[in-house]
């Protein structure tokens, strides 16, 4: 806040600087994680793609039919890839600050920048994998998404949710190592209730109401509407998810500010 230049930069200027910082951090993260050996940056997309593809293939071969006659491979991949995004964003959150603490010596780098860049990288990877899969399903199986906008919106909300959770966890990791231990377990256990591998209309009404408390279920329903609109009934409440995303991000950013205050570099 002290005058660095001739005049304090405006808000737009500050935004431009932040964008550049995040961009630079993104490149650094990319290089640090994937390097330039063998396939290099391609691994970014290949990782979720391979996992999603494997899940889809296994279920396609095992050949259990799905209610509503959905395409089996498409259903599992469309469920798995967004879940992969949430899991990797959340799982990588506890190590975000500890691993990048040295970056804070640069005065323009903030904790939020670090988290945004790391999460954006994961989000972009999953988004790329998702796009690739959607295209493959369209070309090979003729299963073009019915409403692509819904997929994008669902993924964006899912990203917002994961980002908020990651902010909170990262802030918490400043104070205790507990998050480091528990996060993987929690994401693993949350798989069955996350909505990645079921649809709300499969469930009896009582369970439907219970499932709709989980915000990710709404996101998955939205993504599935984008892929299979009209083929199966979907239930989601945009306002509910938006509320979750807003609240989580608000708390997350506030917690991060507080953590920055208490963090001794």
């Amino acid at each position: 806040m002290t005058a660095g230049g001739p005049a304090a930069p405006s808000l737009g200027e500050a935004f431009r600087i932040q964008r550049r910082v995040v961009g630079a951090l993104l490149l650094r993260e990319l290089g640090a994680r994937f390097g330039r050996e063998n396939l290099g940056y391609l691994w970014l997309f290949l990782e979720p793609a391979l996992l999603g593809g494997a899940i889809g293939t296994i279920h396609h071969l095992s050949g259990h039919g799905l209610p509503g006659g959905l395409n089996i491979a498409a259903f599992w991949v469309v469920g798995y890839v967004p879940y992969y995004m949430v899991r990797s964003v959340v799982n990588r959150a506890p190590s975000a600050i500890v691993g990048n603490q040295s970056l804070l010596y640069h005065r323009r780098v903030t904790l939020l920048d670090i988290l945004i860049s790391r999460n954006l990288l994961e989000g972009a990877a999953s988004f790329g994998a998702m796009t690739a899969f959607v295209l493959v399903f369209g070309v090979v199986l003729g299963e073009w998404p019915r409403e692509p906008g819904r997929i994008v919106l669902g993924m964006a909300l899912m990203f917002g949710f994961a980002h908020g959770v990651a902010l909170l966890i990262a802030a918490g990791s400043v104070y205790t190592h507990l998050f480091d231990r528990v996060t993987h377990l929690a994401t693993y256990l949350s798989l069955p209730i996350s909505g990645a591998f079921f649809m709300v209309f499969w469930l009896p009404t009582e369970l439907q109401q219970a499932a709709l408390w989980v915000p990710t279920v709404h996101c998955f329903e939205m993504i599935r509407e984008g892929q299979f609109a009209g083929q199966v009934p979907v239930t989601y409440d945009l306002g509910y998810v938006l509320g979750w995303v807003a609240a989580l991000n608000l708390l997350g950013m506030a917690a991060l500010r507080r953590a920055r205050h208490d963090l001794v570099v």
Partner: peptide
């Protein structure tokens, strides 16, 4: 408002 405030405050940190 809280979200906006936090975001803007975060941005302003860069302009210091």
């Amino acid at each position: 408002y809280g979200l906006a405030w936090l975001l803007i405050a975060g941005m302003r940190e860069h302009a210091g």
